[in-house]
Amino acid sequence: MSDQDTLRHGEGTTHFGFREVPESEKATLVGQVFQSVAGKYDLMNDLMSLGIHRLWKRFTIDQARVRPGYQVLDVAGGTGDLGAALAERVGPGGRVVISDINPAMLEVGRNRLADKGIVGNVEFVEADAERLPFPDDSFDVATLAFGIRNMTHPDQALHELYRVLKPGGRVLILEFSHPTWPGVGPVYDLYSFHVLPRLGQWVAGDRDSYQYLVESIRRFPDQETFKGMMETAGFDLVEYFNLSGGIVALHKGIKI
């Protein structure tokens, strides 16, 4: 079906990497990507970022300022790396809910945390970030790492994050962004488009999925634009931190 046909049938289009697809198809296409890469997802993160993603996530955890007893939501938390660190900080009196739309990613996370003995204060929930199955004002902190660019309606996901946070709660969204250091952009493009898909083929046996992931990064809004989207969703005191020269940015906002 062409874009024109899609629009005539009353449905808009959205991007899936550099392709335009019907909105109703994106979640399925993204689901297929993560179903394919789930088993190698964390290994590929280490290889693609040379391990630096661990520092980005540690910075996110520090900025979350989670305290014992907090109720924390980690959206698109799949393999559980943020969730494990958050669970240690909330302690036995707190709770971390790890949600993800993809059951394969959740299974990886569930097994990983069980192997670490982190089970008592963690809950795994299969959920769409655009329709979170939680009451209003439920969580002290919400985190979302490298997931919002894959959503069909990221603005709706932002509204949902705002809804489920308690007044005074904070959201932290870690995502690939737009390089700010002079000269980094061309080198980053060369690495992204020529090295990462080949790495995906060699390690995960899936070039196409990693080609999509690279393209999805390029389609994601720049830092200032995404800051505006968070403000439109209702968040106050929105700020962002450029990491690794803007290759990644951590966005933070408060629900007043």
Rank of each mutant, 00 (worst) to 15 (best):
Q71E: 11
R89Q: 13
G69F: 07
A129T: 10
Q71A: 14
Q63I: 08
D140W: 02
A129S: 15
F139W: 06
A114L: 13
L113S: 00
Q71K: 13
E123P: 04
A145R: 10
G77F: 08
L86I: 02
F139L: 10
E107M: 06
V97N: 10
F59M: 12
I118L: 15
S99F: 08
N121C: 00
V97K: 04
D140H: 15
T79Y: 02
G94A: 03
G91D: 02
R112G: 06
G93H: 10
G117D: 00
T60L: 15
L144H: 05
A84W: 03
F59R: 14
I61T: 08
P92Y: 09
L106H: 08
L82V: 14
A145T: 11
A87D: 09
G83Y: 05
N111R: 14
V108M: 04
L113K: 03
Q63R: 15
D115C: 03
V141T: 14
A114G: 11
G93Y: 07
T79I: 09
R95T: 11
A142L: 10
G91Y: 01
D62W: 11
F59E: 11
R89I: 09
V125T: 14
G78C: 07
F139G: 03
T79K: 11
L132Y: 14
V141N: 03
G69D: 03
R67F: 11
A87T: 10
Q63V: 00
G77K: 09
D137Y: 06
R112Y: 13
V66I: 14
S99L: 11
N111F: 06
V96R: 04
L106P: 02
E123V: 11
R89D: 08
V141C: 05
A145I: 10
N111M: 11
A129M: 12
S138V: 08
P135A: 14
G109L: 05
I101A: 13
M105T: 04
R65I: 01
V125C: 12
E123M: 04
I98E: 12
Q71C: 09
G83C: 11
D115G: 14
E126N: 09
V141G: 10
V97L: 12
L73D: 11
T79C: 11
V75M: 10
R89C: 12
G77A: 09
N111S: 14
F124S: 00
G120Q: 08
P133A: 12
D74Q: 02
A104W: 13
F124C: 02
L73V: 07
V96A: 06
G93S: 09
R131E: 14
S99W: 06
T60E: 12
G117H: 03
L82F: 05
G91A: 02
Q71G: 13
A142H: 08
Y70F: 15
A64H: 05
V72D: 02
G80N: 03
L82I: 15
G109K: 01
V122S: 00
F124W: 01
D74Y: 00
F139N: 10
R89F: 12
L144F: 15
R65C: 14
I61M: 12
D81W: 02
F134V: 07
L106K: 03
F139E: 06
S99I: 12
D136R: 13
R95C: 05
A76W: 04
Q71R: 14
E126F: 02
